[in-house]
């Protein structure tokens, strides 16, 4: 009887396991199984980021639209109109007065942190108004004095600030014989003019019965 040929165990184990092979159909089945999952993963990952991306794009679009709207709104308004809008907006709030006085000198004494001196205007319309006080404010980002005027029970707001042409643009000057610009904002008439190197903006709101003055 022929004696079996012996080899080292390690080699025999390797040989034995080398003979163990899957057939083509088994390979194909396993590859198909993995490929299907690969496609599913891609689909899943797509479906997971698509809603996020859509939400992000929607958010971006909303923000962009909002900013564009604000930008276009500001740009569509002329500078006098923007001044009038800001003046009326603050006029309607009637924020508490920081100084209560009927004297322009006392007002000047209070507004000592301004880069300009509040002055009386020569505009005739102001002749009927009585000064009752004021507060620090700003107009288009420039520090201003917000003065409150009274005519009977009717309150008006007068803004005075340094006239900066680069900011406020070309405005009518009383000294040149030009009439104030008349602009309506939120239903309230606003006169805007330049006088003595200052920009003036005066509301001319209709009389309001029963409106309580919030003067702090």
């Amino acid at each position: 009887m022929k004696k079996p040929f012996k080899r080292p165990l390690k080699q025999q184990v390797q040989n034995h396991l080398d003979q163990v092979q899957m057939d083509t159909s088994q390979f194909t089945a396993l590859e198909k199984l993995m490929a299907n999952n690969e496609q599913k993963e891609k689909k899943d990952s797509r479906s997971s980021w698509v809603p996020l991306a859509a939400a992000g794009m929607f958010f971006f679009a909303v923000i962009t639209a909002f900013m564009a709207l604000q930008f276009s709104k500001d740009n569509l308004l002329t500078m006098p109109q923007q001044i009038a809008e800001e003046v009326v907006s603050n006029h309607l709030k009637l924020k508490p007065l920081e100084v209560k006085t009927g004297s322009i000198d006392a007002v000047r004494g209070y507004f000592n942190k301004l880069d300009f001196m509040p002055v009386e205007s020569s505009l005739q319309a102001l002749g009927n108004l009585q000064l009752i006080g004021g507060r620090y404010c700003s107009l288009q980002g420039i520090t201003a004095a917000q003065l409150r005027m009274k005519q009977g029970k009717n309150l008006q707001t007068l803004y005075e600030t340094e006239y900066v042409p680069a900011v406020f643009g070309d405005l009518p000057s009383l000294e040149k014989g030009e009439a104030p610009l008349v602009i309506y904002a939120k239903g309230i008439k606003v006169k805007v003019w330049v006088e003595k190197g200052l920009l003036f903006a005066l509301t001319d709101s209709p009389a309001v019965t029963g409106r309580k003055e919030n003067d702090g």
Partner: peptide, 16 residues
């Protein structure tokens, strides 16, 4: 200690 073990192919197949 397995390094010096020798075995025939058929024997391993049967014993596996």
């Amino acid at each position: 200690s397995l390094e010096d073990v020798v075995i025939a192919s058929h024997d391993l197949s049967v014993l596996w």
